[in-house]
Design a protein around this nucleic acid. Sequence first.
DNA 1: TGCGAAAATGAAAATCATTTTCATTTCTGA
DNA 2: TCAGAAATGAAAATGATTTTCATTTTCGCA
Lengths: 140, 140
Amino acid sequence: MSMAMSMVTRKITTTKIDFMNKSEVKVIGILERVGGFASAQELYQLLQRNGESIGLTTVYRSLQSLVSDKIVDQLRREDGEAIYRLCGDSHHHHLVCKQCGSTVEIEGSAIERWTKAMAEEHGFREVGHTAEIFGICPKC
Amino acid sequence: MSMAMSMVTRKITTTKIDFMNKSEVKVIGILERVGGFASAQELYQLLQRNGESIGLTTVYRSLQSLVSDKIVDQLRREDGEAIYRLCGDSHHHHLVCKQCGSTVEIEGSAIERWTKAMAEEHGFREVGHTAEIFGICPKC
DNA sequence: TGCGAAAATGAAAATCATTTTCATTTCTGA
DNA sequence: TCAGAAATGAAAATGATTTTCATTTTCGCA
């Protein structure tokens, strides 16, 4: 399966594509190939090896844009480097292994309720939240 | 209560103290005052303001050492900066206004339980978590 | 008590991911 | 076709963290 093909697939299954430029499409393409988390630097290297013409700056910019459009998830490795992956559409949280970096998507309805309760108690509006759990997975 | 006093308290209530040098004791002292998470840079500033003579390099080294001795917890802010706190501190979370930046400390026992439950369900050990709520405060 | 090895210290330089700047190129719509 | 807007990327800047290395302090022991 070519990357071009997967891009076409995405094109007809999302509406977001209309707001994406070439670079963002390239980044999505490589993220699809990777099929998990990768850092900006890694994605840049992979794109280079694939013969894509794209600068590191543009990779960073595209990722930022995709993250703020909720198309890509961003979290942090233990060394602080940001890692990215295509996100599923449902809102979820992550259980991340500090050792090997493997992640499990977890359910967070308790968090949603906590957020609402706390926001209400303090009169906050338009609330969102972040929540991640870090630990050491069974394998490690 | 002076910091010196709290250090003495710690001295007689832990065994780890025997393996600590002066700098590590200073760092622990300031972490006790902070009572929650702080970055290395922040801790360094606080120590300076307290008139302690300690270099930034040493703050980093002490923190590394304390982390590897399991005396201090390390996690990452969303921007990738490392933050530290004394292990076993009961910690709190923040309700942050997107507009004016004001923050309210909130209780998070629901989160603690959620963390434990999720970790257990997936067999994770040594878990920590981050959780913040963002919204617009009553004033804004 | 004094000596020498080992540990601790911190200033400065190095590292490395990420962001900013800015000049150039590409796109777009009238 | 043309002007303004958006995109691009090389190079410089930034900022946290680590490394280097020369100096100081601590500590065991003769």
